[in-house]
Design a protein around this nucleic acid. Structure first.
Lengths: 246, 246
DNA sequence: CGCCCTGATTGACAAATATCAACTCGACCG
DNA sequence: CGGTCGAGTTGATATTTGTCAATCAGGGCG
């Protein structure tokens, strides 16, 4: 577990505020493990043994039910995931799958609970992490309930466009079927949604998308900062409390 | 703020573990306020000033976007709500409306942040509260993405049936249009979904629903404990840490 | 190169859901 | 008592979305 990657984990908002000793203790019992593409890391319904941190690779969070399958989110390094289940010690509501060969840091839940109980700074970081996760889920739910499939796709493209520099070109980082599942539609309908967006300047060439009329696309998408905007993790600021760091 | 209701608030999982002094300090700056039916308590996009606790009445959490409106949840006393926004100090993602005359305890966010920073037991309670909220949202998202409208209604009825004693009769506690919005469908379609369920022994008489063939309804609904099951709030148990209680 | 496999696309069709309009039924109110 | 209003329902229809099948395109590999 003595890796240069550890420094990156250490810098995560979740761990940055921990005392050196606390962090050491937390990762002492942890495993950094390499998984081949396709590995199912966790399965919904199982009880959590570890808090997972994606250190390298890409992880798909998905859920099943009624014979169907849907992608809840895609985790890019360096990010912790399934924090809520680990904290609550309740069965996972989602499964996780390595989309590519991935390196995962697995922190035993006992250590997690101990750190929460004994390290106030870490507890606060967990609070912010969970609040962030909650709000991401609320956004997804709003996206799903308030928008049509074409609108969701249009907004997805606009968000990616922004993230990639706003140059009028977007490269899809995921397979189209994964994007379809993320947007909550059948793969066939994603193709058709792209066709619908042709009228708004969207030209598809494999994973390369050209946005030739961002204004028209934006008018269609009606982007909403409360759904599509950035998810901030502000620090809890409290003038009255002197933070104990030692 | 000297009310017998305060004892109920005190008993909430969120506050139960606080020290007497800490709880006093927290509610010292709080207001217990009565609102008439229909009052919009908070509006999405606003910055949070208070953590809200429904003490009496019923509160609808809803969201808007793209000219549409959807109900995210319904809060029954005694429950805190919009915890995540208050903790994160980021704009609300949902609005809240008193569905009936309601009494709301409003706790200034400054006090909340202070309590999180200084009271480890409270911080842990917040952690559990947020984890619970996160998981509720994940369930809603799965419900929405994995099920058809009829399946969602069937499961809604089965959950209510269970909650009301499983006697074969269910009384709807909400207006049908609110249920429709909660299920993510148009009110007209709720009527039609009820008609579809006639074949499964569901008889509608206003707000009174008879479930004459629970087995058939269950077969249709394919209930999933990971979506419809109870949301537990287990305590964080850690053998190594001695909990400080005073 | 040619083969196969997988993902993506297209077409035809079916099912689900939304929309618009009309109508019913009670509750409330003058 | 009659009128009015809002919620709910129903019908007709449009739109959206899913399903099934066929085809296409590209990548890896013998």
């Amino acid at each position: 577990m003595r890796s240069e990657k550890l420094a990156l984990v250490r810098e995560l908002p979740l761990f940055a505020a921990m005392t050196p000793g606390g962090f050491e203790a937390l990762v002492a019992g942890a495993y950094l493990q390499q998984f081949p593409a396709g590995t199912v890391l966790i399965e919904e319904g199982e009880r959590p043994d570890f808090l997972h941190v994606a250190v390298e690779g890409t992880v798909e969070l998905y859920a099943t039910g009624a014979g169907r399958h849907t992608t809840i989110g895609v985790v890019e390094p360096v990010t912790s995931f399934i924090t809520a289940a680990a904290v609550q010690d309740e069965p996972y509501l989602m499964s996780a799958r390595a989309m590519v060969p991935s390196r995962i840091l697995m922190i035993p839940v006992e250590g997690l609970h101990h750190a929460i109980a004994t390290d106030p700074a870490f507890a606060r970081a967990i609070v912010l992490e969970l609040a962030r996760g909650f709000r991401v889920m609320v956004r997804s739910l709003k996206n799903q309930k308030l928008r049509t499939a074409v609108e969701r796709l249009a907004n997805y493209l606009l968000v990616e466009h922004e993230r990639q520099g706003g140059t009028g070109a977007v490269v899809l980082g995921l397979e189209k079927r994964t994007i379809a599942s993320l947007l909550g539609i059948a793969p066939e309908n994603l193709s058709r949604a792209f066709n619908t967006l042709k009228a708004y300047g969207v030209v598809v060439d494999g994973a390369r998308i050209a946005l030739n009329d961002p204004a028209a696309l934006t008018a269609l998408a009606k982007p909403d900062p409360l759904i599509d905007g950035p998810v901030d993790i502000p620090a809890i600021v409290d003038a009255r409390s002197e933070v104990s760091h030692g």
